[in-house]
């Protein structure tokens, strides 16, 4: 096991002072890209994800359209300056290609795609600043951008990560914990329907730790869901005020 530069967990406190079941500060803003049909910026601590949605719109090339539902196109991408290491090549890595796929498969169950046959819905996600849990911050941003675009959805999809540090199950890994912890479990959850739509895991987990992680993820997702609802409503209260003027 790699040695962390600072202890990750001391007497129930994490390196950044959080309790095991505590999220970093969550900031959500909806409607950050005026040209897009929907957009959102989500930060979990220092991790910042921006999502923009275009569509439903015409599918090009047309032979890739589906006769009975909309096609989703999802891109997860990290900015070259988003990590503490050297400049990241902007060419999509195998990691980014895989994450784009699992995010698409996490969003598809949430959208009434069958209402838009032969069209496509584009979701573009950019990681501006990375400090762990980027794919789950992306998922929250993407689902808020879809909601902001007015696309009919079964539920919001909230992303949270759960990790394993010194045998303790913790919520919302930062970059340090992601690098040096014993396990990482990114989760996407629909809080109203109780459905898991994103679930990956690596590390070494017992069955009990896995069960505990699911419970903690639900708790974290419900907390973020509250913030997400507020942010969505805030935008439309602003619109309502403007209309009233």
């Amino acid at each position: 096991m790699k040695q962390p530069p600072v202890p990750l967990l001391v007497e129930g406190k994490r390196a950044d002072g959080r309790a095991p079941d505590q999220m970093r500060e969550v900031k959500i803003e909806v409607g950050v890209v005026s040209n897009a049909d929907g957009s959102a910026m989500v930060s979990y601590g220092n991790t910042v994800a921006v999502a923009a949605v275009y569509g439903p719109r015409e599918m090009h090339p047309r032979h890739l359209s589906l006769p009975d539902r909309a096609v989703m196109r999802v891109r997860y991408h990290m900015a070259p300056f988003s990590t503490k290491d050297e400049r990241k090549s902007p060419t999509p890595s195998r990691r980014e290609i895989e994450i784009s796929k699992v995010l698409r498969e996490a969003l598809e169950p949430a959208i009434f795609l069958e209402q838009f046959p032969r069209s496509r819905i584009d979701v573009f996600i950019e990681i501006v600043q990375a400090d762990g849990s980027t794919r789950v911050a992306s998922l929250t941003a993407a689902s808020l951008a879809l909601a902001d675009a007015g696309i009919p959805m079964r539920d919001l999809v909230i992303g949270v990560s759960v990790g394993l540090i010194n045998g303790v199950v913790v919520l919302d890994l930062n970059g340090l914990e992601d690098n040096y912890g014993e396990g990482d479990m990114p989760i996407g959850y629909m809080p109203n329907l109780g459905r898991f739509v994103l679930l990956q895991l690596d590390g070494a987990w017992t069955r009990e730790q896995f069960a505990e992680a699911l419970k903690l993820a639900i708790k974290g997702a419900e907390y973020v869901y509250g913030k997400a609802r507020e942010a969505l409503k805030a935008k439309y209260f602003e619109v309502a005020e403007e209309v009233a003027k």
């Binding site: 699992v102 498969e105 169950p109 479990m185 629909m190 109780g194 459905r195 898991f196 739509v197 994103l198 679930l199 990956q200 895991l201 690596d202 590390g203 070494a204 987990w205 017992t206 069955r207 896995f210 069960a211 699911l214 419970k215 639900i218």
Partner: peptide, 23 residues
């Protein structure tokens, strides 16, 4: 006796379905 990797590749699962899948 450890779970070392999980990947959901399609659809959705409830909490109890996930525990059933693990078993």
């Amino acid at each position: 006796s450890s779970i070392v990797s999980v990947q959901k590749t399609m659809g959705f699962f409830t909490e109890s379905e996930l525990m059933q899948a693990v078993d």
